[in-house]
Design a protein around this nucleic acid. Structure first.
Lengths: 226, 226
DNA sequence: TAGATTGTTAATCGATTAACAATC
DNA sequence: TAGATTGTTAATCGATTAACAATC
């Protein structure tokens, strides 16, 4: 459970760039694909069948050249003179991102944030199913925080991660507890962590961490508020 | 209230780079300052008085050169041979980021997410005070979702933004309602929006938008889960 | 003094864009 | 065919890093 010898996490706020292999696809490109996918799914919902790099770029505020370049890392998905078939490009991006099936996710922390996460319908709708939630507080264990989701003991969660092969976890505990939780998750076999605690985690290089800290965004924006 | 003629928002997921003035500080540098500040505040809490670019870099997983370069855009804050005084550098970063005073924030949407946001103690602790929350659902208006925070009518919120000069808002409504809400906020004088709705907003260039969409992070990470 | 670390410069590295042939 | 848009190349632009004089 010790965290002393891990290198710092590769994370989304600091450096996620890939250094090693020459032909590896830049992480910054991977990071844009989910945005493209989200927009394409929205188009599908609106019944739109065809789009173009220009239209996508306009919606997202990026250049059409960048979109074409990004996609070109993975293949040829469009037709000259026409553009892209929305449904087809969706499917391709889903395969590339490995989201053409549902992923089970566990949540650590059943406070107000953990509870909101457990209740958020948007996860399941987009392919991430929350299968378990735990908390250290014995007073919370046994409570049903969302339909069908009862707060478990953390040891029990760890066992379930192993048994069910869960790879993705959300940390929704206070900052001072986050590293301890991360160590437990890594130990249990988790490979991807979404950390809502306002702190930087140390994890082995095989584990990926991304951070969500709304205050960081506020502080970024206040710089421009003069 | 129409959104038809706005250019796409400058946002954190796509392109935030500054183009214009030659001596402007890169947005990517500004984006790292809040992380530095968070780490320094943590050090303060631990009673640490001195740090170095090397130590900070180690914790954050970035190079010491980058940290020194970033800081050098704003002045000289360290001492050769010694490093940085934690408290002093904190204060300087707070001034640079414009967070040396408390900012009032309004929240639109009092669902489970809006409620969790309203209850999150971390905002006030770090200088962002939620002063109002609204929802379109008449059934929610009048409910006290957090200590001292009663859900208001959206028209009333708009009036308060104007009267009290609030500049920062959080959007915590479903995606299909987000653009409408953004238009209302811009109209009321909001200059910075943190959007939790999974969609891209169109706002005037004078308004800054940052996005939080956990599914985007999941999908980014699943690419690496093979 | 000797050791450490800053702030800065120049070189390197990588990402974005402009432009266009190919082609639907 | 004429018009539109892709995929790709080369040029541009910008960010990161290595290195080191200055100096505490």
């Amino acid at each position: 459970m010790s965290s002393t010898s891990y290198p710092p996490a590769r994370n989304n706020r600091t450096r996620n760039r890939k250094k090693p292999r020459r032909d590896e696809i830049p992480d910054i490109v991977i990071g844009r694909l989910p945005i493209y996918l989200r927009t394409l799914r929205q188009m599908t919902a609106e019944g739109k069948e065809i789009t173009s790099s220009q239209e996508l770029g306009q919606i997202l505020g990026i250049s059409s050249a960048q979109i074409r370049k990004d996609l070109s890392h993975f293949g040829e998905f469009g037709k000259q003179g026409t553009g892209y078939n929305v449904t087809y490009l969706c499917r391709q991006l889903e395969k590339i991102l490995n989201v053409d099936h549902t992923w089970p996710v566990v949540v650590v922390g059943a406070g107000s944030l953990g509870t909101a996460i457990a209740n958020y319908q948007g996860f399941a709708k987009r392919g991430f199913q929350i299968v378990a939630i735990c908390d250290e507080d014995p007073g919370k264990i046994g409570k049903e925080v969302a339909p069908g989701l009862v707060v478990e003991d953390c040891a029990r969660l760890s066992a379930r991660i192993r048994e069910e092969g869960v790879k993705i976890a959300v940390i929704a505990v206070p900052a001072h507890a986050a590293q301890r939780v991360a160590d437990m998750l890594v130990e249990a076999g988790i490979r991807a962590i979404l950390c809502y605690a306002p702190t930087t985690l140390k994890v082995p290089p095989s584990v990926r961490v991304e951070y969500i800290d709304p205050v960081i965004h506020f502080q970024h924006m206040t710089y421009y508020l003069r």
